[in-house]
Structure formats: C-alpha cells, structure tokens
Design a protein around this nucleic acid. Sequence first.
DNA 1: TAGAATGTATTAAACGATTAATACACTTTT
DNA 2: AAAAGTGTATTAATCGTTTAATACATTCTA
Lengths: 130, 130
Amino acid sequence: MNVSFNKRDPVYIQVVRQFKERIATGTFEPGQEIPSRRELANQLKINPNTAQRAYKEMEEEGLIYTEGNNPSRITKDEHVLAAVRGELLEEAVDSFMTSIRRIQIPFDELVEVMKEKYQEQSGKEGGEIK
Amino acid sequence: MNVSFNKRDPVYIQVVRQFKERIATGTFEPGQEIPSRRELANQLKINPNTAQRAYKEMEEEGLIYTEGNNPSRITKDEHVLAAVRGELLEEAVDSFMTSIRRIQIPFDELVEVMKEKYQEQSGKEGGEIK
DNA sequence: TAGAATGTATTAAACGATTAATACACTTTT
DNA sequence: AAAAGTGTATTAATCGTTTAATACATTCTA
C-alpha cells in the first residue's frame, strides 16, 4: 500500500480513489478480500473511522460488499467492475474539458501539448507526501 | 460579466480565473481599466473584500497594476499577457495527467475519448449557478 | 467462555480557509 | 470644505467538512 496523501483532498476520498485505481488496473480481483477497517487504518496511519468512511463510500457505490461482520470484499459484479475504469477516465476528461473550454484552443494544439506532457510523465509514480 | 459561481471553489479564485480567461481570449486589452473593488463587488453580488482579495491575487501575479488610488488596469507587460493562456492550458493539462496517470490508458485511446467530448461540448457555455 | 476481532452508528471536536466587518489614508469631485 | 469615490490593512466571524472519540452488536477463536 502506498501511504502518501496530498493534503488538498480528504483522506477518505483519496483512499477510495486508490481502491478504484487498483480495481481499474486489475490489482484487485473480483471477490478478493480487503483489509478490515482497523487494519487498513493501521497500515495507512489513519483513523479507523476514516477507513470506515472510505469503505462505506465504496459500499454505497457497489464496489465492495460485506457479509455479516466478515472482512469486506471486492464486488464480483462485472458491470460495476467494468465501469470503474471508464468512470475514472470520463471524470478526468470532463473536468479537463470544463477547465479549458473557455480558452478556445484548437483540438490539434491540445493534442500536441498533451503529447509532450504524456511522454514527460511516462514512468513517473505520482503522489505528494502529507 | 457572468455572475455564475460554482460552490466548490472559493469565489475569489473564480473571479481571478474569469479575468485570466478574458485576458487569454483577448476580451481584455493591455492597459484597459477594470472595475473598482466596490463596483465589481456590486456587479457580482459579492463582498468588497472578496473582490479585493481577487485583485490582490492578480496584482501579485502581475496581471493588473494600480497607481495611486486610481482604478486598476490590465498590465501592459507583453510577457505576462502572452503567458496567461499557456499557464491556464498547462495547469489544466498537468492536473489532467495526474488524474489519469495511474489508469494506464494508451495515448491514442485518450485522444479518442477526448475527441468525442470535444465535439459534444462545442458551443456550450459552461458554469453552474450558485 | 473469555477475549479479540469484525462491522456499524452516533456524536463531538478540530481544523482551515473563506468571507465579512471595520477602519484608515488619499484623491477627486461637487 | 464636504462628500463620495479610490485602494489598503487588520481583525473577527462564519462555515462546512473532515476527522476523531466512543460505544454497541456480532462472530470467530484460543
């Protein structure tokens, strides 16, 4: 587990995002057991309630499920799983589009700028320390 | 003046951004007089101090200047003016790249998704009501 | 069976930033 | 000269969210 957080976004949101990324990239398998709230809290040095908050969030989105008081698991719902990556992507693109909409930049120029950045960033493993 | 703000970002930041967009797209000319703090506050229905905060921000970035207690003006500094658009763009791209870095999406696919969105959004005039 | 581990719920505290209130100095205008 | 308009500075209040404290019910385990 990567224990780096930025201090701009709430911790619980960042935890959720990490899980989504791991689901999207296949690091998590369907039905896979995930750490208990308290264990995750220990690992990440966060408050157990913060972990709980993140899990609750994910549960409401159908990303994980919990039966009885057993450790929660990654959902097996193929639809949900398949959608995660697309949602992350779409979210990012939408937000991006919104922020450049008014600058009136031609699409080609946009692609050009991005191409440069894309190469620069290849191989980087982002995240700021708290 | 567009009087729509989203409630996620601070008002003074959004004001700064609007000015930057207007500079970037040429709506504001070098040396052009801009509204006084109190007048802008009236127009946008915001607190005068919030307007002041926005102007202070812009003054520190060299976007505007103030001589004596005359109304502030858009800078005439060509370097600054030329940089505004690039900064807005780069900022957006950077933030975008950060958010998709870990999803491992091929550049071509990315361009594809964006192309669709780009067309969809053509002609839209964004901004949420407070 | 006692203890430790689960998940869960309720309530309180802390925190930080933004926004607002107020006052001051100066200049222009009436 | 008075009034209204500038920009500026200092300090206080507001605000919402996040984080934390605490307790409870259940289940597994030693």
